Simulated assay, not measured.
Amino acid sequence: MSRRFSLTATGVFAGSLAALGAFAPTAAAVGPFDLAPLPLHSLFQEQEPDRLTVTVVDTNITRADGTYELRCGPSGGTHPEAASACARLDELAAEDKNPFAPVPDGQMCTMQMGGPATARVTGTWHGRSVDATFSRKNGCEISRWQNLVPVLPAARG
């Protein structure tokens, strides 16, 4: 009896596979809206590492001004605090924040001057192109700069 059950189950299983095969699309039948299988390696493919160029001027801090390369995933480059800078970018990503977004138009900002420091960050972050400028010309810009320390140096006024 056990033998008959296994033969019957195997027969049913084989028949089910054959029936499914009749409905499976062939490569020629896949249209633009059909789901095509992804290659297995693409499911596990890691994102390109982040690569940023950070240029800072007029910080009034010895050895803070200059142009640095920052690589994350793993951290490296010529940035003086690469590991800490990458960790900060990871924190902001975990909070689902774009640290390179400009101050929104119409944003009310305090009229204070945080010093002459300016910075420009270019490159790629999380697969997106970055080209952002930073200053310390008002409260919003100071806050935006401070949010990115240590990617940007803690400038003094």
Score class of each variant (00 low, 15 high):
Arg3Gln: 13
Ala64Gln: 04
Pro153Met: 08
Gly11Thr: 01
Thr118Ile: 02
Pro25Lys: 05
Val57Lys: 11
Thr59Lys: 04
Ile142Cys: 07
Thr26Ala: 10
Ser129Met: 05
Arg128Met: 11
Ser16Ile: 14
Pro25His: 09
Ile142Trp: 04
Glu48Asp: 13
Gly76Asn: 14
Phe100Glu: 06
Ala18Met: 11
Arg51Glu: 10
Gly76Val: 04
Phe100Ser: 14
Leu52Ala: 11
Ser6Ile: 12
Thr10Asn: 14
Val149Gln: 09
Ser84Cys: 01
Gly21Asn: 10
Trp145Gly: 01
Asp58Met: 04
Ala85Asp: 09
Ala64Ser: 15
Ala18Phe: 12
Ser75Leu: 04
Gly77His: 08
Arg144Glu: 05
Gly157Gln: 07
Arg136Gly: 05
Thr59Ile: 04
Thr55Ser: 15
Gly77Met: 10
Gly123Asn: 12
Pro150Lys: 07
Gly76Gln: 09
Ala87Pro: 01
Ala36Cys: 00
Gly11Asn: 03
Thr55Ala: 15
Thr118Met: 11
Ser129Arg: 01
Arg51His: 08
Ala85Thr: 05
Pro153Cys: 08
Thr122Tyr: 05
Asp96Leu: 13
Glu81Tyr: 11
His126Phe: 04
Met111Pro: 00
Phe13Arg: 02
Ala22Val: 08
Thr122Arg: 13
Gln45Glu: 15
Met113Asn: 15
Pro102Ile: 09
Cys109Gln: 07
Arg88Asp: 11
Glu81Phe: 14
Ala93Gln: 12
Leu89Trp: 12
Ser135Thr: 15
Leu7Phe: 03
Met111Lys: 12
Arg144His: 09
Ala82Gly: 13
Arg88Ala: 13
Cys109Arg: 01
Pro25Ala: 09
Pro39Met: 01
Val12Lys: 01
Ala9Pro: 00
Ser129Leu: 02
Ile142Phe: 09
Cys86Gln: 03
Thr122Pro: 07
Gly115Met: 06
Phe13Ile: 10
Asn60Pro: 00
Met1Trp: 11
Lys97Pro: 06
Pro37Leu: 08
Gln47Thr: 04
Ser129Glu: 12
Gly115Lys: 06
Gly73Arg: 08
Gly66Asn: 06
Gly123Glu: 04
Thr55Met: 04
Asp50Trp: 11
Pro99Thr: 07
Gly31Asn: 01
Pro99Val: 03
Gly157Cys: 08
Ala64Ile: 02
Ala83Lys: 08
Ser75Glu: 14
Thr124Cys: 05
Ala101Asp: 12
Leu52Gly: 09
Gly157Asn: 14
Ala27Arg: 06
Gly127Glu: 05
Ser135Val: 03
Pro104Ile: 03
Asp96Asn: 14
Gln45Ser: 11
Ala64Val: 03
Cys140Arg: 06
Ala18Asp: 02
Glu81Pro: 00
Gly21Ile: 00
Phe33Gly: 02
Thr8Asp: 01
Ser129Lys: 03
Gly31Met: 02
Thr122Lys: 08
Ala132His: 07
Leu148Ala: 13
Ala83Tyr: 02
Ala64Gly: 11
Pro32Val: 06
Ala28Lys: 13
Pro80Thr: 04
Asp34Leu: 03
Asp131Trp: 00
Arg71Trp: 00
Cys86Gly: 11
Phe5Tyr: 02
Gly73Thr: 05
Phe23Tyr: 07
Met1Pro: 06
Ile142Tyr: 08
Val103Asn: 10
Ala85Gly: 13
Ala82Cys: 12
Ala83His: 12
